[in-house]
């Protein structure tokens, strides 16, 4: 039985800038179930990170979010900071790209980990130590006892990311948000961390939101994928369907421009141009200017995100419900 734990409704994020207002995320509707791994894919500026920073109450000072972000019936956007503090780290936690910025450089690993347990779960120091150590072991840190006493700078990048993941998982959150968790890591270390996420998926009931630009990472880990472009979701599909039969022209183009390690390609098919300036979004479809299939109507009308098949949505005027390819 699918149990929804997180829902966003019409989630919109705006920033005030000297050049005027920028809408980084527009009308996002997500529904995420317990234990599921959802990937949010997009390039820089697509809004994929801002969406979840807003959910965590971590937007920059000039940013504000509207709409709803509901975790088990409670709207996170309506909460006062003190209320949000109760949920953050306990029910919802986040792992960032650069593990160094998430760790306090002047505290030992032990203190960083036990703090959340003492704050959120009222553990005694001794209980917290034991649980934190067990978690370090669970995330595959060799010789955890010794590492427990170390400072972040004494650990390698991969180890730090494991510590961040351990920290995020300590209170067994319902939702774990991982923002480019392996982008800063070397490929052999990335493989270790992805393997760890894979094990967590099987071992915990935590829902995982994986924010990434890397389609390879998505293919290896996600159950369901949302593709974002210029602040909007353009396509949503189960992972196999998305890679086998992408519907939105942007998704197709993204796949065609991705280099492959498993086959010989003559050359890539790049997407011409570049993403639009969010301050001056075109009237119609934001992708129309780069789209190989665009017609006159695409520049005039903004395509709504509509259901096109079971569990699949797509925001393209040229994609009809069930099997009709854009021509």
């Amino acid at each position: 039985m699918r149990k929804s734990i997180f829902k966003s409704e019409d989630l919109t994020v705006r920033f005030d800038t000297p050049e005027g207002e920028v809408q980084a995320v527009s009308g996002l509707n997500l529904d995420i179930a317990a234990g599921e791994t959802v990937a949010i894919v997009g390039e820089s500026g697509s809004g994929k990170s801002q969406t979840f920073l807003s959910v965590m109450g971590l937007l920059a000072k000039n940013g504000r979010a509207s709409g709803k972000a509901v975790l088990e019936g409670r709207d996170l956007l309506k909460m006062r900071p003190s209320e949000l503090d109760v949920y953050r780290g306990r029910d919802i936690s986040m792992v960032f790209q650069d593990p160094m910025t998430g760790l306090n450089p002047s505290l030992r690993i032990s203190r960083q980990l036990t703090e959340t347990l003492e704050v959120h779960q009222g553990c005694t120091r001794k209980e917290a130590d034991a649980r934190a150590l067990a978690m370090l072991e669970a995330v595959g840190i060799p010789d955890p006892k010794r590492r427990f006493r170390m400072y972040p700078h004494e650990l390698s990048g991969g180890m730090r990311q494991r510590v961040m993941i351990a920290m995020a998982l300590l209170c067994e959150p319902k939702l774990l948000i991982a923002d480019e968790p392996t982008t800063a890591l070397d490929v052999t270390i990335q493989a270790q961390i992805l393997e760890l996420f894979g094990q967590l998926k099987r071992g915990f009931d935590t829902a995982l939101i994986l924010i990434t630009h890397d389609l390879g990472v998505v293919a290896g880990l996600a159950d369901r994928v949302f593709v974002m472009y210029a602040g909007r979701v353009v396509e949503e599909a189960p992972v196999d369907d998305l890679f086998e039969d992408p519907k939105h022209p942007y998704t197709k183009a993204l796949l065609a421009s991705t280099p492959r390690i498993d086959t010989d390609l003559e050359s890539l098919e790049p997407i011409p141009g570049r993403p639009p300036n969010l301050q001056r979004l075109p009237k119609g479809c934001a992708f129309a200017a780069r789209c190989a299939f665009a017609e006159a109507q695409c520049h005039e009308l903004r395509p709504p995100l509509k259901s096109i098949a079971n569990q699949r949505t797509c925001a393209c005027l040229l994609v009809e419900a069930e099997e009709r390819e854009p021509v």
Binding site: V187, T188, Q190, A191, L194, D214, L215, G216, V217, V218, A219, G220, A222, V239, D240, F243, L255, T258, R260, I261, D262
Partner: peptide, 9 residues
């Protein structure tokens, strides 16, 4: 170790 953009593979 390099990720492959193909879920089945």
């Amino acid at each position: 170790a390099a990720p492959v953009p193909d879920p089945k593979a």
